[in-house]
Each structure stands twice: as structure tokens, then as C-alpha cells.
Amino acid sequence: MTTVERQLLTSPRKIWYRLAITFIAIILIGWSVGAVSFKDVNQSGFQIAFNIVKGIVHPDLDLLFNVSKQSVPYLLVQTLAIAFLGTIVGGILSVPLAFLAASNVVPRPVAWLTRLLLIVIRTIPELVYGLMFIKVATGPLAGVLTIGIVSIGMLAKLYVDAIEELDVKVLESMTSIGCTTFEKIRYGIMPQLLSVFLSVTIYRFDMNMREASILGLVGAGGIGAPLIFAMNSYKWDQAGSILIGLVILILLIELVSNKMRARLVKG
């Protein structure tokens, strides 16, 4: 008998604990299923789903390969630009907030207040931000602002985790030889954080591309609005063209972003 098997046999049997966890899980699953209503699932819903699949199989090729402002390529480029600029804005704003939220950099009260602000930012959904910003600026600008604010919540949190894992011995050594604050940031902090920051930002851009396609539903630019208009007008071939273009673009972005993050981790 191996050591692992002996430890398994001699470990205490927490039968009541497991039964209690199982009972609570069953209750939660039953309560969740009871909260879901299947009354609205009817024949028309299945017909719409069938029409969407039919539109993907038989898309509007002119809309898919045209180069006008109403075409799929133009709308995808606009959505890509919204996601990219929003990620840049969110990444830049997240850096100072992350340092203010790191307890090993600033006093704990300051870090606690900044973390509270980040929690509030993460709590509000992106569609709510979109509805707020279209009152200030319509179109793609509202989408960029929305993506930027939404990105701050996640990016700053992950930046904080990286900052709090800094090797402080390097900074102590630089202080002992008389380095200035700028030199400590440039040669002591940034080399440790740059690859992590870039990897997290690229991952967030991958997510923002999906969110940017949804923001068009509230008028914040991108491909979401034409998609919902096509579906509401029962133009399934146009909806299929938009979905095909969106899926291809997201797959390409995910492929490229995965390779970039893998290189950053190795480097």
C-alpha cells in the first residue's frame, strides 16, 4: 500500500459535511430550475432559430464582400477600432489606479478606497455604461468610452495583483545605491510588470471585441445595431452575413492574441 493510499484511508470521514453540501446544492439547483419559465418557448421561437441558421447557410454575399459603409467589412473594422481604442484608454487609466490600489505601494486607507472605486466600476454592466455615454456622445465615441470604463475594472484588478507580487528586494538594492524614483520605476518596476500588463491587456482586448459588437444595440457604434435591425426586419440572409463576419473576425483575433500572450509569457 502506497503512502497516498494510507493517508486516504486514515483521513477523517466527513460524511455529514458532504451530505450537507449535497443537500444545499440540490436545493439551489431545484430553486434555480423553478425560477426558469419554459412557457415562452413556442413554435415561433424555434422557427426564428431555424431562420437564423438558414441565413448563416445562405448569407447575403453582396453585404459580406462589399466595401460600402453599410457592408460587413466596414462595420467589422469600426467595431475593431472601438474595441482597440477602448482597450488603450482603459489600459492607460488602469495603471495609476492599480498603483493607488496596491497596499505595498500606498497606505492601506488609500488602497482600500481605490479598490472600493474599482468594485463600483466593475458592478455596473457595459450596456448601462453605453446608455449613459450615448447621452454624451453618440456613435463610435460612446462605444470607445464605454469599453474604456468597463476595461478599467478588470485591468486594474489584475494589475494590482501583479504589483503586489513585485520583488521588493530589487527596489531596496536600487535605493541603497542612490537611484532616483524615476530610475526605480524605469529599471526596477517596469521590467517586472511590462510583460504581465501587456498580456492582461491583450486578453482584455479579446473580450472587448465581443462587447463592442453588443454595444451597437444601444447605439454606441459597431456591428450590433445592423444585426438587430436585420433580425427585426426578418432579413435573415443579412443577419447571417453579419454573424459569419463577426465569428471569423473574433476567431482571428483570438488566434493572434493567444500567440502574442504565449510569446510574452515565454519572453
Score class of each variant (00 low, 15 high):
I147H: 02
E172Q: 15
L131N: 12
V160L: 10
V120D: 05
P125R: 02
L118Y: 05
I163W: 05
G153E: 08
E164H: 14
L141F: 05
G139R: 10
T123R: 00
L158F: 07
I121D: 03
D161K: 11
V168I: 15
L127W: 05
L131M: 15
G143R: 06
I134C: 01
D167H: 14
V144F: 13
I121P: 02
I149Y: 06
E164Y: 11
S173E: 13
L158G: 00
A162D: 10
S151Y: 04
L166T: 15
R122A: 05
L118G: 04
E165L: 13
L118Q: 02
A137E: 14
V128L: 15
K157P: 05
K169P: 00
E164Q: 15
I119A: 15
I121S: 04
P125C: 05
F133T: 03
S151A: 11
R122D: 09
P140D: 01
T123I: 03
L127H: 08
Y129H: 05
A162M: 00
K157W: 10
V150L: 02
G153F: 12
I121M: 12
L166A: 09
V120P: 06
T123A: 06
L141S: 06
V144Q: 09
G130D: 08
M132D: 10
I163P: 00
S151P: 00
M154A: 13
L131I: 08
I134W: 03
L145D: 07
V150S: 07
L166Y: 12
P140I: 00
I134N: 01
E126D: 11
E164I: 14
G130N: 12
I149D: 07
V128Q: 03
I149M: 11
A137V: 12
Y159T: 08
I149H: 04
K157Q: 06
S151M: 07
G139N: 04
V128F: 15
L131Y: 10
L131C: 07
K135A: 15
L158R: 02
A137W: 07
V168M: 14
I152K: 01
A156Y: 08
T123V: 09
G148W: 02
S173H: 08
G148L: 06
L155H: 03
Y129S: 07
V136L: 06
I149E: 05
I152G: 02
I134V: 09
S151I: 04
V136Y: 01
L158Q: 12
A156K: 07
I152Q: 03
K169A: 15
L118P: 01
K169C: 09
G143T: 05
S173N: 14
F133L: 00
L127R: 08
V150C: 01
E172M: 10
E165M: 10
L145K: 13
G148P: 02
I134R: 01
T138Y: 12
V144R: 13
V120F: 12
L155F: 06
Y129V: 08
T146F: 09
D167C: 15
K135D: 06
K135E: 12
D161C: 00
E126P: 05
E164V: 10
I124L: 14
E172G: 14
S173R: 11
I134E: 01
Y159G: 08
A137T: 08
M154Y: 13
L158A: 03
I124R: 06
I119G: 09
Y129R: 07
M132Q: 04
L127F: 11
M132C: 02
L155G: 03
V150K: 04
L171F: 00
I119Y: 11
G139C: 02
V170A: 02
G139M: 00
D167V: 14
V160S: 02
K135S: 11
A142R: 05
A137N: 12
